[in-house]
Amino acid sequence: MASFLRLLASERLKLSKSYIWLLVPLSPLLSLAIGLLVSLDTMDTTWKYGNYAILVTAMASFHAMLFLPVLTGIFSAFVCRYEHGGGGWKMLLSLPVSRTALFFAKFTVVASLLAVTQLLFLAAVFVAAAYQGIDGTIPWRLLLTGIGGGFLACLPLAALQMLVSVGWSSFAAPLAINVALTVPNMLIINSKTFGPLYPWAQPMLAMLWYGEEDFGSLALPMENIVITILGSFAVFLAAGLLYFNRKEQA
């Protein structure tokens, strides 16, 4: 555990002087713009959670469907990029560190960047809500399950992207794979059969609520999402760790 924390401190230093932080507020800012521009009056306000649900659904549509999964890939590729670039892997792995701890340290960095992104999104929701003049109690439970669920739903993707990014010294290739797997979201989300099973669609399923509306897989209960998230997380993480531990460090 101590060695994991030391690795984490080292990763933090490497990241602190990089440009990756500029990417973190990008999607929340875009969502904020949507939140400010969306007109709540034209929407059907009979939804169970009222205006908040409409606002969040509008704001999260691009964020959860596209940006969050794509950012997951970018973050993962980024924490591996500076190792591939300067021969960092062989130096790191010649130090007294376990490969598993190193993998988790990098994974933790990716997860932290995602968590910050989600927190900024939450802040964007509040700003937009204030601007739109939505009053009434804040549906904390709903907001936190949605935003937290979106975060958790990205972890399996992060695990898979770590596997791909560790294996591939190219920065673009893992991203291309990630985008190629994210784009079908737009179709898959409408499918009751595949939607609940497709890992890349989970952030969206977690973050968008249409209440009792029957709209493809979006009407599914949270339990379904959790099972898919946990299942894919276990598989991708195990594959990543196995691969990284056995990798020949050439």
């Binding site: 030391r6 490497k14 002087k17 500076y82 960092g88 130096m91």
Partner: peptide
């Protein structure tokens, strides 16, 4: 040699120092 190009020499060593 292995290095992190965006960091200074001190920070490069610090990144290792924190680990060991």
């Amino acid at each position: 040699p292995s290095y992190y190009g965006h960091l200074s020499a001190i920070d490069n060593l610090e990144a290792i120092r924190r680990i060991i």
